[in-house]
């Protein structure tokens, strides 16, 4: 009895800590007062203003575009790295390749952002590319730090499954190219999908690297939100938080239901 009580107490306090701030934010998004924390009455006022805020809508669109492109490129290269490191023996300067593909994981994003910005400025001086900072430079930066995360996921999947399948395919005369497409790729498909999703959220959530590498016309959603809440509070951002939470909760519930029905089958 004592043990059960302690367990329920721990879980209740833990989950309250995780959810209390989020739920408060959602509750106050319906507050009809410009001063965020003083309750005046229930309204959808800030949702209406949010949907008429061109700046936020445009930033949202920019973020989605950069995130999906970045995730796709990062996944393709992450798979290449994961496959190369686990399956190809002759890689020139292999330790250097391992260093390159794993150290973005431990590099503080502020250093990553600074180095990429200085790089873009210098290369613009020397070869005139990139002609200006903007969506392209943010995209390149996001691909660069996401690749390492995808590579880790792919690598751990590849090293945990039986290589004999590939060797069997090889013995049966399958040409090396086809081994990847017909044997390896289908097996690691779930890892590829979760790699893509991780890269997508990393890009969508990134503020620091994007702040360094952005330019005119490339304000991502975190950059716009940060400029609104850096010095004060914003009721529109409360409404935005509530919408994002709703999307995340719906996604989580649908994944839960899909999982459950899969298990039942």
């Amino acid at each position: 009895m004592n043990k059960l009580f302690f367990k329920i107490l721990t879980l209740t306090i833990g989950f309250s800590f995780l959810y209390f701030p989020i739920l408060t934010l959602i509750a106050y998004s319906f507050n009809d007062n410009k001063r965020v924390m003083v309750w005046k009455g229930f309204s959808f006022r800030w949702y209406k203003e949010l949907f008429h805020n061109e700046q936020i809508l445009e930033a949202f669109y920019t973020s989605l575009k950069i995130a999906s492109l970045s995730a796709t490129f990062a996944t393709v290269m992450g798979v290449m790295i994961g496959f190369s490191l686990t399956r190809i023996s002759k890689i020139p300067a292999r330790p250097f390749f391992i260093f390159l593909s794993s150290s973005p994981l431990v590099m503080p994003e502020i250093i990553l952002g600074l180095s990429l910005l200085l790089f873009f400025i210098s290369s613009n001086h020397i070869i005139g590319f990139p002609s200006s900072k903007g969506q392209l430079t943010v995209l390149i930066s996001h691909i660069t730090f996401s690749v390492a995360f995808v590579a880790v996921i792919i690598q751990s999947r590849l090293s945990s499954y039986d290589k004999n399948i590939e060797e069997a395919a090889q013995d049966l005369g399958t040409i090396p190219n086809m081994i990847f497409w017909k044997v390896t790729a289908p097996v690691i498909l779930p890892a590829i999908l979760s790699g893509w999703l991780l890269a997508f959220t990393l890009s969508l959530d990134d503020l620091v690297v994007a702040s360094f590498t952005t330019g005119p016309g490339a304000n991502t959603l975190p950059i716009v939100v940060f400029s609104k809440v850096r010095l004060g509070l914003s009721p529109e951002v409360n409404a935005l938080s509530a919408i994002i939470m709703l999307i995340v909760i719906l996604a989580a519930i649908s994944i839960y239901l899909i999982n459950r029905s899969n298990i039942k089958k």
């Binding site: 995780l18 975190p222 809440v229 509070l233 951002v237 989580a252």
Partner: peptide, 15 residues
Amino acid sequence: PFWSSFLLRVYAWKV
């Protein structure tokens, strides 16, 4: 909470 926006969770504490 792991999936939801990092920036907005920090902002929640500011509120």
